[in-house]
Design a protein around this nucleic acid. Sequence first.
RNA 1: GUGGGCGUAGCUCAACUGGCAGAGCUCCGGAUUGUGGUUCCGGUGGUUGGGGGUUCAAGUCCCCUCGCUCACCCCA
Length: 463
Amino acid sequence: MGVIKPSLPKGTRDFLPEQMFRRQFVLETVRETFERYGYAPLETPSIEKLSVLSGKYGDEGENLIFKVLRRGTGLEKLLRDESEFVVNDFGQLVDEALRYDLTVPLSRVIAMHQNELTFPFKRYQIQPVWRADRPQRGRYREFYQCDIDTVGTPSMLADAEAASIVFEVLSTLGFQNFKLKLNNRKLLNGLLNACEIAGSQATSVFIAIDKMDKIGLDGVRNELKASELSSTQIQTLLGTLEIEGDPESVLVKLTDDFGDRDPQLLTGVQELQEMTACMLELGVPIDAFSIDLHLVRGLGYYTGPIHESVITEPNIGSLTGGGRYDRLIGMFLGRDIPACGTAFGIERIIDVMSQLDLFPKQTNGTQVLVTAFEPSTRAASLSFAGELRKAGLRVETYFEVCKLKKQFTYAHKKHIPFVATIGPDEASRGVASFKDMETGEQIVADPMGVVQRMVEKQGVGSS
RNA sequence: GUGGGCGUAGCUCAACUGGCAGAGCUCCGGAUUGUGGUUCCGGUGGUUGGGGGUUCAAGUCCCCUCGCUCACCCCA
């Protein structure tokens, strides 16, 4: 009898319990923060109509959409006799696809349910998305995204709120060396106008300047030369991108240099001035963010402020990214509704937290193991465990009576911090021998004594 | 999609110009019949990713294939 070789589709993962506790720790922190700012949960189906997803992610993105083969439309005939079934159109093969991100489904939801929703609509969404990409380190074909968005207001306060939630979440999780980078698509577009760079060249220019961190100033200059810009254009563009300093002075300098040359650039500057002012009022420290004129953020749907949070150690790229997209919903509705938001790269956040050792030792696992001493003390053990559970502790009981050595090994492997043993002596007195696995210390106590001990020890019962 | 590197025990890796497939860790058991981690002793564990070829002989050489990985592209 042959066994089936167990394996996973490439770019997918199992999350074993130990990892799940870590994931939940992060997701619960994130969720709790979102709800404190008034964002409400939303879920959408894993599959969408292909027509909903098509044309939103650029040419590259289009190829990365996981398409779902059409079901029961005669495709099986292809297997039997090609002549019976002729494919004239891609739509005959594929009509649905797996969700590629959370923003486009949100836009669809807004367009479909606009009369049932109260605007501005503030939602968060934590669900997996799929990309038919070739996997690499930190890059998967199935991964979770975690988005907050505000739909229905052009206010820069909404952009600032998203950015400050990023700051709050990352700080709460224990990150210290991260920085929010801000830019604005209007500013970038305006800058290209001011440099008299044609719209047809915008995409390649943006791709080039976005690589600044990776290939450096010279690398960017070479790419720009390759895209047939004049040396004057390159000089003006790169000179401007190099402007650094605190947000206010960068924005003032941009106004001085270009304010009379392009109205769109000026609008972009004003948006950022208002956004950064709001961020300060929301309590984001001034040294936690900066204007980074190289920041481009993909090629998709952004129309206003854009932002990214980066961490330098380890140098793994961005942890979050987002911005304003005032036109996307219009693609489903026929009229534009302003929107902005941000996505948390939850997979990377978890990776980096592991590397930086930011997880608490014990998260949500069992706190107390009650051993199985012998059949006659089972009732006493179970009722002892029950008392501890009533007090809010996470308690498990060992199922089989066997050597205590084995049961203690079990607790050790599962990182259970306390073990309670009830033998005939303890049972007759209504107490347990209660061992602290970390210190090796052991006391004899009744259920209340145990609870009290644990509160002293690690402030348990709160989670 | 383009171009490199690598596939040997659960994990990390050895095995000379082709010559008996091994070690450490893990795991299981014992030393220790009411107590984990340290130590000591013993044990389990393999179609050398898969298929074909060359050879007296292939983990090693050749071909195909699958998988993983790195860089590019793009992205979270």
